[in-house]
């Protein structure tokens, strides 16, 4: 079989949280070594947290995550902290690195577009707008990158989403910051109840079609299985999980979707929490340590109420630029 024109399809079924990460990393090593382009699926059998390659472990809530809480695994592609549970189906498209176009964002888009088509095939009118969305809500978390000599695009189909649990995994500087994060997630991140088997079939057809490949059901080869053993050890190594020190930022911020983010900072005795969409204010809450809490969409009102024109300046700065 001429492997260069084929698409290996592997549905691992339900796997352990660790394997839901290491399996597709092993595939990346196989494709790097000349293996065929591969479309893989798995369903995590438990709850855990996945953190992106460049992100700091300090972004995670220490009580909810780590030794006394949810397991944390660091992936080799981008993005931030993500809450994973059995209500999700993961998919990964792994191709040789020389398939990349010069524009990285374009590369990711091309590797995700067949998934968008698959969503539509199963009755979800999804579209791609920096990420996979349904209307103005994000319905699929994605990330991508080059691992060795392979390009990987990963995503998830969310059949059910525990927003409260997802909000609980980030380290929040104040209760109202976490509450705002949860509120914006409820508004802008949606589950799309889906027949996973139907999505697998649709995605297989769409990816094969998009890249003119013949799909065949496959499995890891011997080399990939050895690499899988190595990755299983690496991913639980505290040094790997610990990663590197994160960037220091002037204020706390967490991304809800590519267009929506929540920020928090202190100005003297005031705690300012704000949510933005595409640089425009969705809401502002100002709290004081003696229990005053004012929530509004009217920035001028809150500046007047607290006699703090700096709130406006701070919000202008926070509004500029979505976090990664």
């Amino acid at each position: 079989m001429d492997r260069s024109a084929t698409l290996r399809v592997i549905d691992f079924g339900t796997v352990t949280p660790l394997r839901s990460q290491t399996l597709w990393h092993a595939i990346a090593s196989g494709v790097s070594a000349g293996g065929p382009p591969t479309l893989a699926f798995c369903r995590p059998g438990g709850r855990y947290v996945s953190i992106g390659f460049h992100r700091s472990i300090d972004e995670l809530d220490p009580e909810m995550c780590g030794p006394t809480g949810l397991a944390v695994f660091r992936r080799m592609v981008g993005g931030g902290p993500v809450y994973i549970d059995p209500g999700q189906l993961f998919f990964q498209m792994v191709v040789p690195a020389d398939w990349a176009t010069a524009r990285r964002g374009e590369t990711i888009r091309r590797l995700l577009e067949p998934a968008v088509a698959a969503f539509r095939d199963v009755g979800i009118p999804a579209s791609f707008d920096d990420e996979i969305v349904l209307g103005d809500r994000k319905i699929c978390g994605h990330a991508g990158g080059q691992i060795g000599g392979a390009l990987v695009a990963v995503g998830n189909v969310i059949d059910s989403f525990d927003h409260a649990a997802a909000a609980s995994i980030v380290r929040a500087p104040a209760p109202e910051a976490r509450d705002e994060y949860l509120r914006q997630m409820r508004r802008f991140v949606a589950a799309t109840p889906t027949d996973f088997d139907a999505f697998v079939a649709a995605a297989t057809h769409r990816y094969a079609d998009a890249f003119a490949l013949d799909p065949f059901p496959g499995d890891l080869d011997a080399t990939e299985r050895r690499e899988l053993d190595r990755l299983d050890r690496l991913f639980v190594d505290p040094e790997w999980v610990g990663g590197v020190e994160g960037r220091r930022r002037p204020w706390w911020r967490v991304k809800v979707t590519s267009k929506v983010w929540v920020t928090h900072a202190r100005i003297d005795a005031l705690r300012v929490t704000a949510a933005f969409r595409e640089g425009r204010v969705r809401s502002v809450r100002v709290c004081t340590d003696d229990g005053v809490s004012v929530a509004t969409r009217n920035v001028e009102e809150v500046m007047r109420r607290f006699g703090a024109p700096r709130i406006g300046e701070l919000l202008e700065e926070m509004a500029a630029g979505a976090p990664a």
């Binding site: 103005d136 425009r280 920035v299 919000l315």
Partner: peptide, 11 residues
């Protein structure tokens, strides 16, 4: 800084 009303356009 204007307030976003994204669903107004949708309706």
């Amino acid at each position: 800084m204007t307030v976003s009303t994204e669903t107004f356009d949708l309706r």
